[in-house]
Each structure stands twice: as structure tokens, then as C-alpha cells.
Design a protein around this nucleic acid. Structure first.
Lengths: 346, 346
DNA sequence: TTGTAGGCGTTATCAA
DNA sequence: TTGATAACGCCTACAA
């Protein structure tokens, strides 16, 4: 490998001068600058990152830790936006998938201590802020959707309740009366170890239904069906809905888009068409939803805004321009009507 | 931050001893080991990666450079597999998206020179091996689907021709007679700057058609329609196929799955149903294809095998266990019949 | 069995 | 305007 010293020798100056020159130092003679640049070019010099990081005490890297890029393509969206925002702020970004594995998550948090990045944007995947604090030596972390309630880290919330409310509300306003929630149930929300997110979705749904006077008390639990928010779970749920008999829903609020797509698929397996037989609305805004048959109506999360917030908060912590209490913000969202909600606005 | 020295002081031994002990040195007294470990734990010590990399001259990182995680979810699959294989080989993996931007690709290759990773698995995105060699200071690179013909870097090929052949063949065998190729045309293949991959797909398609005596010479070009392999292009193509009139195809071979999904969507916009009105087969094997309506039949690439190959080749180069001529292998694939090809095997 | 010393490549300080 | 020097934190001969 080519080092500063090699360039210095070739240019006939000291390593210090090369370093200074190459990084745009002000008081360098024309003559020196030319020689140094020429030498660097000829030798194909690039600064060694490890050495630079060691010297600076910073890596210039921000790591994004998510469940898995294939869980929902919303994560791929996050990756893309984080990258852009980071680039704009002079940082590089780096992705890590935990794949729902607590040990991998642990390792990820460990990485920050080994200074392989300056800060981390972290989907805690059910791990509590306290547990993470224990693993973390005071390095900057921004959490995504942390509901531990502790104000330990900066935190960006997805407005689950409001999104569920908006989705439900839309179905109601466009004529649905027998609406079901897919991806959350009271039973599921009450189960130990389940993310509070489920409860929030539930609440948003119930609030909209109650407001419209559509919730018949003794049938409440028949109108909600729990399950992980993934394709294949959706497929099973869609089939189950029909198979258990008496399926009379005219609208389905799904807790995210992949789940919704799965449900539509499962329903199709049983001959139920969307939106003709039942209307469906998802949540997240994955790109794929624009191209499915039917196109998926959804409550789209402002991923860009969210990631911008995250990176900004993080960078402020890293460069020390903010070191106060943990901050918390909530991302915004917007209803996108395509075909599956059958409202005709598409 | 906590350093080796801090731990040493706390344990009352030298930094060297701490380093040695912590990495499982053999000849350490019980007493020393205990004190060192206790001190490290209490202080929450983790070795600084930059320092370690600098010392070793290695980072333990392998970087995967792809177009974009949202271009096709096949890339997300690659990421996942690379990660697993790397972990098994004692490396960490790192992803970078070029987003079709030549400058970003350039930067990516630059990264390897700055030693931020020990090696790189690279989708050259149209850049030639020669151009990349010029940017690269002799660092290990494994190329994905490089068709520059130069044997400069280890290279893993996607069997485009064979995959197109297999897809076409399947449609023929299951009764299609008026088959079209979507995503490649002679015009496109002949255009300057277009990836050779288009020509390969074309060739596979034509070979299968010729063998079956299904290609009427003067209508050849009507049976192929070019375009980038992305959702929205597929949507346009699907519509166009119908809009230009005389659409009589009974089978569509699409160059990849996202394109196929787009085409199905575009066709649906014009009231053409898959597989009832026309059969469709894609290529790649994205997860989403299992859940769409209709489920997408596809020629599935063995992404895991491909990434295993890539990482193995790379690691051999990195640790010096191989330093011969550039090697080249071809990934394998398998036909997956679901619903869209309408063969009934699903 | 443990400690000393030197160096990995870079940069900041300060002196020349 | 340039150069010598001393870190940054870690690891490993080699010495004790």
C-alpha cells in the first residue's frame, strides 16, 4: 500500500507537508502543491481510513440497524434515505440487519463501542432502552420507535395510532361498515413480550370505529385478528378469515403493507376479490404497492423526513452541538388512495 | 473512551498483558486473567477498531456494492446471504448502493483503496473491468456479472442466456405458441452502452424459439420489446403491448421479476388477465413473487450459492490462499412454477 | 509468566 | 512556508 511517506519521498518533502497539502492547506507554495499532488496521483495514494480514524477519534460513519431488508421493503427505503441524508451531512452510512436475533442486535450495539461508527440509528426490535444502555458506553444512539418510555435516547416515533385511525376513518368515510383490523388483536396486544405498537394500532382502529358508532360491544374481538406483520402471515390470515366462516367484512385495515399484500393474496386464494368484495388499506408505503394487482392503498409514512430527523439528531450529538435531554419526535404520514381501498379516488 | 491502558492500570498489570489475556493467551496465570477480565468488564472495555485495523493492516470487512436495494429485492437477498456467509468466515459485511450513479461507483471502489474494507463484491453496473482496475490499487475484488471479457477480476456470472432459454422453453412445452420477450430487443441490444446481458437474454429466447420452430423470420422484432428491468417500465410496456393493437401473445418471457410484476400490472390496466389471457414468467426469484396475485412463476437464481462463491473467492484472495489468475464461475438456477405461467403445476 | 519498546499511517502542534 | 515530533490505541517480538 502507498502511504503518506511514500508520497513525501517522491515529492521530496516531509510527510506532514503532504498531509497538509492534500487536505487543502492554505499556506502551501504553488511549487510544493504541484509536486505533492503529482506524486500522490502517480503513486495512487489514498489516505488509510483506519489511521485517520484513529487519529481523529471519529470514523465518519453512521450505522443503521434494522430488522431485515427483506422483512419489509420499507427498510430498504430507510437505507436509501439515510444514505442520502448522511452524504449531505458529510457522513458515510452503513447498514446492519439483526434478523430478529437478539444476539445480533447485541453485537450491533457492541460495534458502536468499538468505535466502528460514530453513531447509530437503531430499531430496537423489542429490546428495551435500558438493556441497550447497559451495552452502550455512552455513544450516540437514535432509536426508532422505542416505546420503553424511558427518555434515555433520542427517539423517533411512528404514529401507529394515528395511522390506524386514519386508515380506518378513510374506510368508514367511503362507506365501509363492517371493518376489521388485521395484524393486531386484544389478545395479541396483551401477550407478554409483544411490542406496544400492536396496542397502538388497536387503539387507533377502535377510536375511529367508536367515533363512528360502528363497534358493537360484544363483537369487538371478532373484528380484530392478530399476527406478525409479514407476507406469509398475511396469506394465512386472509385464508383463515374466509375459512372460519361468516366472513362479512367490507373493509380491512392492515397494520402494514406487506401484511396487506399477503392478506390480499390469501383472500384471492379463497376467491375473495379486492376491492370488489372487500376493501383493503395498508400502512407504510412500500414501493411495490404501486404495482400490485390491485394497487395498494396505504397510509404512507414519511420515511425521508423520519430519516432526516434521525440523522440530524445523531449528527448534533456526535459533533457536540447538542447534548441535552433525550428528544422525541413523531414522523408524519399521508393517505395514499390507490385501488385496494376502492374509494374511487385512484 | 476506555483503552487498554485504563484496563491495565485498574488490573495492575501492563497493557501488553491485558491485550494478550483478553484475546485468550495461553500462558497467563489464573490470578492475572481474573483481574484483567474483571477490570475490562467493570470498565466496559472494547478494543478500538481503528487501532486494531491499523495494527493488523486488515479491517475484517467485506463490502458489497449493488445498484440499489430498491431496484429489485434480489439485491436485498444478496445482502442477506453475503452477510451470513461472511459471518461464517469471520468477516463483517457492509453494503453500498450506487444508485446507477457512476460517481458513487467510483467512490465505492475508492473506499477499498482507503482500506475501509479488505475486499469487495461488486456489481459493476456497466463500468468495465478495465476502468475499475484503473481506480483500484490491487485490492481484492470479485465482480458480479462482468461481461467486459477481460480476465482481470474474479467474476461470477448470472446465466442470462440459459435462464431466458429455460423460461421460454417452459412456456413452449406447456403450450404457448406466440411468445414474446419483454426487457430485451435487438434494437436495445445493439444500442451503445447497453449491457451485454440484454443480448444474452435475447439469445436464450431466440434459441428456444428457433428450436421449436416458432420464430417467423419477418416477425422476429415484433416478438421482442426492450426496456429497463424495473417495475414502472414494466407497467408502461404492459400497457403499450395492448395499446399498439394486435396483441396476440399467449406467453411473455420477462427478463426479471420486477419487470414481470410491472408488466402484469400494466396488462391488468388494460383488462388483460394473467395467466388466463396470457401467461407470464419472470426471472430472479424475488420473495414478493410468492405473494402477488397471480403468484409469479420464475426462473430462480441461486443467490445463496452465488454469494457463497463470491465470498469464498474473495476471502481466499484476502488471506492469500489463492493468488492465481482470475477465476470465473456461473451461478445455477431453477424453474419455479407458480401461477403466472399457467402450467398448472402450482 | 509478564513487561518493554517499537511501529502501524495519519494529523496537530509548534518550532524553524 | 515547511518540517520534526508526538500522539491516537493496539499488538507482538523480544527481553526479563
Amino acid at each position: 500500500m502507498v502511504t503518506l511517506k511514500d508520497v513525501a519521498e517522491r515529492a521530496g518533502v516531509s510527510p506532514a507537508t503532504v498531509s497538509y497539502t492534500l487536505r487543502g492547506g492554505e499556506h502551501v507554495s504553488k511549487w510544493t502543491e504541484e509536486r505533492v499532488r503529482a506524486a500522490a496521483r502517480e503513486l495512487g495514494y489514498s489516505a488509510n481510513m483506519a489511521a485517520r480514524s484513529l487519529r481523529y477519534g471519529k470514523t465518519g460513519m453512521i450505522e443503521l440497524v434494522v430488522r431485515g431488508l427483506d422483512v419489509s421493503t420499507i427498510y430498504a427505503k430507510m437505507v436509501t434515505h439515510v444514505k442520502h441524508v448522511c452524504t449531505g451531512r458529510g457522513y458515510h452510512s452503513l447498514v446492519m440487519q439483526t434478523e430478529q436475533d437478539p444476539q445480533t442486535l447485541r453485537d450491533a450495539v457492541g460495534e458502536i463501542n468499538r468505535q466502528s461508527c460514530d453513531g447509530m440509528i437503531l430499531d430496537p426490535c423489542g429490546m428495551t432502552a435500558n438493556a441497550i444502555r447497559k451495552l452502550n458506553r455512552n455513544q450516540p444512539i437514535v432509536m426508532l420507535d422505542d416505546y420503553s418510555g424511558t427518555r434515555i435516547f433520542d427517539n423517533i416515533l411512528t404514529p401507529h395510532e394515528e395511522m390506524a385511525y386514519a386508515a380506518t376513518r378513510h374506510l368508514i368515510e367511503t362507506g365501509c361498515r363492517r371493518i376489521m383490523l388485521v395484524g393486531a388483536s386484544r389478545e395479541q396486544a396483551a401477550a407478554p413480550g409483544v411490542t406496544p405498537v400492536v396496542g397502538l394500532r388497536l387503539r387507533g382502529f377502535l377510536r375511529a370505529m367508536d367515533e363512528a358508532g360502528l363497534m358493537v360491544a360484544d363483537a369487538v374481538d371478532d373484528r380484530m385478528i392478530g399476527g406478525e406483520w409479514r407476507y406469509f402471515v398475511g396469506v394465512d390470515l386472509g385464508r383463515e378469515l374466509v375459512d372460519r366462516g361468516g366472513f362479512d367484512a367490507d373493509g380491512l385495515v392492515c397494520c402494514n403493507d406487506t401484511l396487506a399484500l399477503g392478506v390480499i393474496r390469501g383472500l384471492a386464494d379463497r376467491g375473495v376479490r379486492v376491492p370488489d368484495d372487500v376493501r383493503v388499506i395498508g400502512s407504510d408505503g412500500i414501493t411495490m404497492g404501486e404495482f400490485t394487482v390491485p394497487r395498494l392503498s396505504t397510509v404512507e409514512l414519511d420515511v425521508h423526513g423520519m430519516m432526516k430527523q434521525a440523522v440530524d439528531m445523531l449528527v448534533d450529538r456526535i459533533d457536540g452541538s447538542y447534548d441535552g435531554d433525550a428528544r422525541q419526535t413523531t414522523a408524519s404520514f399521508a393517505l395514499h388512495c390507490r385501488e385496494s381501498c376502492g374509494c374511487g379516488a385512484a
